[in-house]
Amino acid sequence: MTGAGLAVREATVRFGPTEALSDLSVSVAPGEIVAVVGPSGCGKSTLLRCIAGLQPLDRGSVLWDGVDLAMVPTHRRDIGLMFQDHALFEHRSVRDNVGFGLKMRGRKAAERDRRIDELLELVGLGGFGNRAIPSLSGGEAQRVALARALAPSPRVLLLDEPLGSLDRARREHLVGEIRSVLREVGQTALHVTHDQDEAFAVADRIAVMRSGTIERIGTPERVWHDPGTAFVAEFLGHNVISTPEGPAAVPADAYRLVPTNGLEPGPPAVVFDVRFRGDHTVVTVDTAEGERVRLRTGEPTSLRPGDAVGVEIDPERVTPLGEDPNPA
């Protein structure tokens, strides 16, 4: 784990009797984007604050290229930080916001101006330099915050729910934009969000957090197809069913609904709820095995609650789950 880039090692943070982080370890290689997801209160923002030096660790360490940062205060850590509420400096213009980090690093005015223009161009706000902060829309403010964080080329960019305050459509649009901007500059980044779609859209690797520890980490594909624990499977929206070999995860789209003709060997499943979601429909059924599962179908359906229906599973997509490391 000691290598280039950012590493958090066995970090523990206590708030009174509760542990916000317990023995958490994670590393981010140079140029890599890692997304940390988890339910609210799982400690993901605390992890960010520790890396930023805003929250002291009770145990463990934060390292950069193998060097411990414990004695380095926030303003010398060379990090970028982006918040949900933008945290822009309202008394300064867009230019001055973006240029703030450069000024703190003692860059010359001419160099600053060049870099500011470059960054505003990059986030699609060319010509916005002299605008006042209160005149910006939510999306624009978010881009300024991104430009400001990127301007000094920080070693690592920390994003704390950066898009939480935007509506869904704008969020999806900006997620794509953030990813391409981060890629373009090869930015190392740690992106904290509660929204798994956002995490999947941005990250090279995804870490799923649960009560202060990382329960699963890997590429989006791997975490999706092999969630490892029931907690992660459920967090991703998979069904957890029991099989003779033990619990297993089944994604909602791994099922197929088939009409029942009453000739099947076993009793059919019964529809509990049908929810039309636009491009797909979520059908919740109670199976003959007594489990309630959510399944997802792209085809139109005329099922109603109480209908009997046959359910087939794609056996390829049933993934056995390991033992739960920390049962709830």
Partner: peptide, 10 residues
């Protein structure tokens, strides 16, 4: 957050 953002920027 405004203070923290400023600290992060150096």
């Amino acid at each position: 957050h405004v203070r923290e953002a400023a600290a992060a920027l150096g």
